[in-house]
C-alpha cells in the first residue's frame, strides 16, 4: 500500500516535471535551440500572475492577462533577439538565452519584487478524501488536479502540433528553416507563436509549482528538474517530455524510499541524471526523440 502511494505521488510530481520540460521542447522543436531562459519565464509568469491576483483581479482574468504579458514577451524576443541573429550558429542563440535568463530574472524581480508570495489558485493540498475512504490510499487532491490540468495542456499542444496547419509549419521550421522560408512560411510569426506557447506552458507550470512552493526566486531553479526529463524523453518530443517526466517522478521517489537508506539518502537529487545518462547510451536521441536520419 505504501509502495503504491509513493509510486502514485511520484507519478503526479513527475507530471510537474513534464510541464516544465514541455516549455523547453516547444522551443527546441521550432528553433533547435535549448532555451536556457525557460526557468526565468516560469518565474516571470508566476510572479506576474500572483501580483495580478494580489491586486484583486479575479483568477481567470489574471491568468489571461499574464498570458498576454507572455505573448508580448514573445513578440519582443522575436523582434529584438531572434530576428537580428537569424542564421547565426546555434551556440550563439544558446548564449543569448543564457543572457535572457538573467535579464528576465532581474526584470521579474525589479518590476514586481523579490518577496515570497503565497499563491492560492483554489485547490487545496489535502488528501483526496473519497479515494482514501475507498482504497485507503493517501493521495493529495492538489497533485491529482494539477496532473489533470497538465494533461489537458499536453493534449491541446499535441493536437496543435500534429493536426493543424500552424503545427505543421512549426515542425517544418524546426526541420529545415531555409526550406520552410522557401515555401513562404513566415519564420518570424512562427517564432512568436512558439515562444508564446512556451510562455503559456511557463504560466501553467509557474502557477502549479508556485502554489506548492510559494512564488519566489527558487522557482526559476525548478527548471533544472526538467533537464534529465529532456535527456530521457528526447529534446524534440512532446510525448517524450510527458513519459520521461512520469518515469523520473516515480523512480526518484521509489529510489529515495528503497535505495535511499543504503546510501544515506539524497538520491532524489542525482538519481534522475543517472537514469538519463543510461538511456543516452542506448538511445542517443532519447526515448521519443526524432530518429536521427543519417541518409539524405
Amino acid at each position: 500500500m505504501f509502495v503504491l502511494e509513493v509510486f502514485i505521488s511520484g507519478l503526479l510530481s513527475g507530471v510537474m516535471y513534464s510541464l516544465v520540460a514541455l516549455g523547453f521542447v516547444l522551443i527546441f522543436k521550432a528553433s533547435g535551440v535549448f532555451n536556457f531562459a525557460q526557468g526565468a519565464m516560469v518565474l516571470l509568469a508566476a510572479l506576474t500572475f500572483v501580483r495580478f491576483i494580489e491586486m484583486g483581479i479575479p483568477l481567470w482574468l489574471a491568468a489571461i492577462m499574464t498570458f498576454g504579458v507572455m505573448i508580448v514577451l514573445a513578440i519582443f524576443i522575436e523582434r529584438f533577439l531572434l530576428r537580428p541573429l537569424v542564421n547565426q550558429p546555434l551556440i550563439t542563440l544558446f548564449m543569448l538565452t543564457i543572457g535572457l535568463n538573467y535579464f528576465l530574472e532581474g526584470l521579474a524581480q525589479a518590476v514586481w519584487d523579490a518577496e515570497v508570495h503565497g499563491l492560492d489558485i483554489g485547490i487545496e493540498d489535502v488528501p483526496w478524501v473519497g479515494l482514501e475512504q475507498a482504497t485507503g490510499l493517501l493521495i493529495s487532491m492538489f497533485d491529482v488536479i494539477s496532473a489533470l490540468i497538465a494533461m489537458g495542456l499536453v493534449i491541446i499542444l499535441s493536437i496543435v502540433f500534429n493536426k493543424t496547419k500552424v503545427g505543421r509549419a512549426l515542425r517544418a521550421v524546426s526541420n529545415d528553416h531555409q526550406a520552410a522560408m522557401s515555401v513562404g512560411i513566415p519564420l518570424n510569426r512562427i517564432w512568436v507563436i512558439v515562444w508564446a506557447m512556451s510562455g503559456l506552458v511557463a504560466l501553467v507550470a509557474g502557477a502549479l509549482w508556485g502554489t506548492r512552493l510559494g512564488v519566489q526566486f527558487s522557482l526559476s531553479i525548478v527548471a533544472l528538474k526538467a533537464l534529465p526529463v529532456l535527456i530521457l524523453g528526447g529534446f524534440n518530443s512532446i510525448m517524450g517530455a510527458i513519459v520521461a517526466g512520469l518515469i523520473i517522478g516515480a523512480s526518484e521517489k521509489l529510489g529515495e524510499v528503497f535505495l535511499g537508506p543504503y546510501v544515506g539518502g539524497g538520491i532524489e537529487s542525482f538519481f534522475p541524471y543517472v537514469l538519463a545518462m543510461m538511456v543516452l547510451f542506448w538511445r542517443p536521441q532519447g526515448l521519443f526523440g526524432d530518429v536521427i536520419i543519417e541518409r539524405v
Binding site: N175, D176, S182, I293
Partner: peptide
Amino acid sequence: QVMEGRHCFEHL
C-alpha cells in the same frame, strides 16, 4: 523557389 539539394522536411 525549389532549392538546390531538395531540402525536404525529413521528419515530415
